[in-house]
């Protein structure tokens, strides 16, 4: 089961115009956008699908009305879809659609879809830095920042679910779909990595009461910490509101900056996440501010300690 990670996260919302404003400002590209919604894509084609909550084509909402309506996972090949369908059909309905995709639900009632991934292979440099003692990554006269530098989300990175039954959630994704636990914040939940992705996590669970079930946040990978800072600063300067960050997490080592959104969850920029293979041994730490982040900063308006008295 070569699951790569989320291709799309599908939302049923009550304000498509607000979601369009937010996701476009966030840096995603509207695709086939109408008044009924559309796709907001990162550079590799993954992204957020927004529809009106009453759209009859959406999978059913959770009983609590959560806006998350479906997680669409990208896999490598048709054989992976067949393997997933055969496994899950043992104890639930699996709908095989004419386009070769399959739809079902997980053990908590979250709607799932599996498809051959839409992810385009990106060919872009990571953020380049220069440091004494190491070969320079930028050529002579190559600048690190400039006013209109691009800072676009590259790919859908991960999503985090509020789940009332951690054992059921972990058991389903690990035992049935082949995810592995990379680390665990005790008191919150585990970080999960699917087999065909070496990112520290594409999925994380937070244990909550039943009435909270739904999306806690979702995140897109940026090209590096500078792009993350530039994109977040641009949002702040337009009046969008930060929830948490910028900072850098410990588990996963990824930089983070979370923004509130009209999607019913926070939306995060992340950058420079750790990679893991099957030799990694999961760590456990009790959740705390100290365990959660290496450092945490807060945005402020630009300021300069000058110009001082005139000569």
């Amino acid at each position: 089961m070569n699951i790569i990670g989320p291709d799309y996260l599908v939302f049923g919302v009550d304000d498509i115009a607000a979601c369009t404003e937010f996701l476009t400002a966030f840096g995603l590209e509207p695709v086939n956008l109408t008044e009924n919604g559309g796709l907001f894509a990162a550079l590799d084609g993954t992204g957020i699908i927004v529809r009106h909550k009453n759209d009859p084509d959406l999978p059913a909402a959770l009983p609590n009305g959560a806006m998350l309506r479906q997680q669409v996972y990208g896999v490598r090949t048709d054989a992976d879809i067949v393997a997933i369908a055969d496994e899950l059909a043992k104890d639930r309905k699996v709908h095989r659609l004419a386009d070769g995709t399959i739809e079902t639900t997980d053990d908590l009632g979250f709607a799932l879809k599996f498809q051959i991934t839409v992810r385009k292979q990106l060919d872009m440099p990571a953020e380049k830095i220069n440091a004494p003692g190491a070969p320079a990554q930028r050529a002579p006269n190559e600048l690190g920042v400039w006013d209109d530098m691009p800072a676009k989300p590259r790919t859908l990175s991960h999503n985090v679910l509020f789940v009332p039954d951690m054992e059921a959630a972990t058991g389903f994704y690990c035992n049935r779909l082949g995810f592995v636990i990379t680390d665990e914040l005790q008191g919150a939940g585990p970080f999960l990595r699917p087999k065909a992705n070496d990112d520290h996590h594409t999925l994380f669970f937070i244990r909550t009461p039943e009435h909270m079930k739904g999306m806690e946040h979702l995140a897109f990978h940026m090209g590096g910490p500078t792009e993350l800072m530039v994109a977040g600063t641009r949002l702040m300067n337009k009046g969008f509101e930060s929830f948490w960050g910028p900072g850098r997490h410990k588990f996963g080592s990824n930089w983070f900056w979370y923004f509130k959104s009209p999607l019913g969850c926070n939306v995060e920029y992340d950058a420079d996440m750790d990679k893991h293979d099957d030799s990694w041994v999961a760590r456990q730490r009790p959740i705390s501010p100290e365990a959660s982040q290496m450092f945490l900063l807060q945005f402020r308006e630009k300021w300069i300690p000058g110009p001082g008295p005139k000569p």
Binding site: A66, S261, N266
Partner: peptide, 25 residues
């Protein structure tokens, strides 16, 4: 207690029937 708007003054749902915290809806 965390601030609730998703942008300046954006405190309401689409139908303008409820105040919303836009961190988790």
């Amino acid at each position: 207690g965390t601030p609730m708007a998703w942008k300046t003054d954006a405190y309401l749902n689409g139908a303008r029937t409820h105040l919303v915290c836009h961190a988790h809806g």
